[in-house]
């Protein structure tokens, strides 16, 4: 009976979507530098509707041009709740991991862990990954991080929406 019940739950779980939930703590990830520095990188490189902007994909990410939390948010600026949901998704990948060894860094980095979306960054010293790593390490305010994030911002800037 237990085995049948386990199989039932496994099948039912496979059919259902993933709910990131809204009650989990964000942990130590800093929100302001995420919004300012990191989210634009993720929006351009990760969060499109054909990658992590998918509701039931691991590391589901909301963004202005990608997945929205509600239908009526399409064409609207990103909302705080969506950014917080992104933080929760990131924090849930590998709680307690050392940033430089974390899947969040190693999957998109060449030579790291297999990533369905391919290699986004060739080296750790590239501005985008340096900026993301500094945020994970809580050093976004240091000059080197600020410089990396400024360079990354130029690289990933999206054109403004049509008026």
């Amino acid at each position: 009976m237990r085995r049948w019940a386990a199989a039932f739950l496994a099948v039912a779980g496979a059919c259902g979507g993933v709910d990131a939930g809204t009650e989990q703590p964000v942990g130590e990830l800093e929100q302001d530098s995420y919004t300012r520095d990191v989210h634009p990188i993720l929006e351009a490189r990760c969060a499109t509707l054909d990658c992590h902007g998918v509701d039931d994909r691991p590391l589901r990410l909301y963004s202005e041009t990608g997945l929205r939390a509600r239908d009526d948010l399409r064409d609207q600026p990103i909302e705080r709740d969506e950014l917080v949901a992104n933080l929760r998704a990131i924090a849930a990948i590998e709680p307690g991991a050392i940033p430089i060894d974390s899947l969040f860094i190693r999957k998109p980095l060449a030579g790291g862990v297999f990533h369905e979306g391919g290699d986004l960054w060739a080296r750790l010293d590239e501005p985008q990954v340096a900026c993301v790593l500094a945020w994970l390490e809580g050093t976004s305010d240091e000059p080197a991080a600020a410089e990396a994030c400024a360079l990354a911002a130029d690289e990933v800037a999206l054109p403004p929406p049509t008026p």
């Binding site: 929006e43 499109t48 509707l49 054909d50 990658c51 990608g66 054109p159």
Partner: peptide, 10 residues
């Protein structure tokens, strides 16, 4: 009209 973001794989 230009897409604001890119197509990564779809």
């Amino acid at each position: 009209q230009s897409m604001r973001n890119v197509i990564h794989r779809e």
